[in-house]
Design a protein around this nucleic acid. Structure first.
Lengths: 211, 211
DNA sequence: TTTCATACATGCACGTATGTATGTATATTG
DNA sequence: CAATATACATACATACGTGCATGTATGAAA
């Protein structure tokens, strides 16, 4: 009722705190990775102490898992679903790459890459969670590649699953590498995707152009 | 003189031990990263204890720096120099990408990527060393891109420096993503490089081909 | 307004990994 | 073969961060 924020319900308070800590943890994981992440700092940057953090999350591992899930959901909504709504498989893949480029202009975007690299050689719940998320994405992209090849929009090439793996790893790398360098980030991303899929460049590759 | 290894000079002994620890540390950094690397394990896998390690290296940081230098040198000899000996800039870039793909079939290859990701957001000597190495490489690749565009083998596109950054980040990612999946790793790598550079695919991209 | 539950803060115990100091074996020099 | 330096092992001190237990304040319910 009142315009002020003075009167707040417990549930709202809890959710707000949880969100702040989650966002802080996402930034921290992006920047420092899991091992170097110090919970004291996470809590302080969110405006709380470790007490609040341990009240809302069972521990460091649960916190990281929650961040992974959170980032995964926003990525799903902002990148994956819009891409899948395209009619053509090739268009879906290109839209996904473009969307990811825009998504990566924010700082939390590195979370997945950071965690995946950090836990690549180990058997850790957080690493598994990231791996499963990426794995599902790869499977889906493999389906798009296969469909595109069937309908002729994508020429044949290496196995769809492997092509999809290269596609996912590549858009992750490029997006971060050239993040924010608009408009070239999108341009380079599209070029790379077309390259991986074996689709010819949009601009005439012929040297006969007027110049 | 004698064929046995029983009689060994101190310098030789030192160098051998140093090499073993360096190799072990490289594997460890590849797999676990810097923060998760535990020196006890590094020494043990090399056949020594932490005593030997601390006798040869000032500490964890110096060890990591030595690994970075060591990996950088092998990469320089096995990938960069052969690539630069190509006549055409485009050929150089393609050879570099191919060479890196083969290089990444070994386990130590991840070292650079792992460290770069881990120290991306921080100001750490090891991170700086990696960053400088990659930076020099990017500068060199930017020169190749510019040269290729001048002589017409590479079509125009985003700024050379940015294109080079995307190139380097991408070959790192793809090589690791599809490492060892011969022969598709090389195929996907070449496709991606051509894509980034805007060069048309080798196989006829025209839909008019016989099918 | 009294009572309870929940959000959050503070302080301590524990494990773990680094770095260093000390001890022992192997190689070099006279 | 003595004497010394160097390669390496072992033992200890220290720091740091997590997890948990306890204490305090704020919102809900009677």
């Amino acid at each position: 009722m009142s315009g002020t924020v003075a009167r707040r319900t417990q549930a709202d308070r809890r959710a707000r705190t949880r969100g702040a800590i989650l966002a802080s943890a996402a930034r921290g994981l992006s920047t420092y990775g899991y091992a170097n992440l110090v919970l004291e700092q996470v809590a302080r940057e969110a405006g709380y102490t470790r007490g609040a953090l341990y009240h809302l999350f069972a521990g460091k591992e649960e916190l990281a898992l929650a961040v992974v899930e959170w980032v995964g959901e926003t990525w799903d909504a902002e990148v994956r679903r819009p891409a899948l709504s395209e009619a053509d498989p090739l268009a879906s893949l290109l839209t996904m790459a473009r969307g990811h480029t825009l998504y990566c202009r924010r700082d939390v975007a590195r979370v997945m890459l950071t965690l995946r690299v950090e836990f690549a050689g180990q058997d850790h719940p957080v690493g598994r969670a990231v791996g499963e998320t990426i794995g599902r994405l790869e499977t889906e992209c493999a389906g798009l590649v296969a469909a595109g090849r069937r309908n002729g929009s994508i020429p044949p090439g290496p196995p769809a699953r492997l092509t999809a793996a290269a596609f996912v790893g590549m858009i992750e790398a490029i997006a971060i590498q050239v993040a924010g360098q608009a408009p070239h980030d999108v341009e380079l991303m599209e070029r790379a995707v077309r390259g991986i899929l074996g689709v010819a460049p949009v601009v005439s590759p012929s040297p006969a152009t007027h110049h």
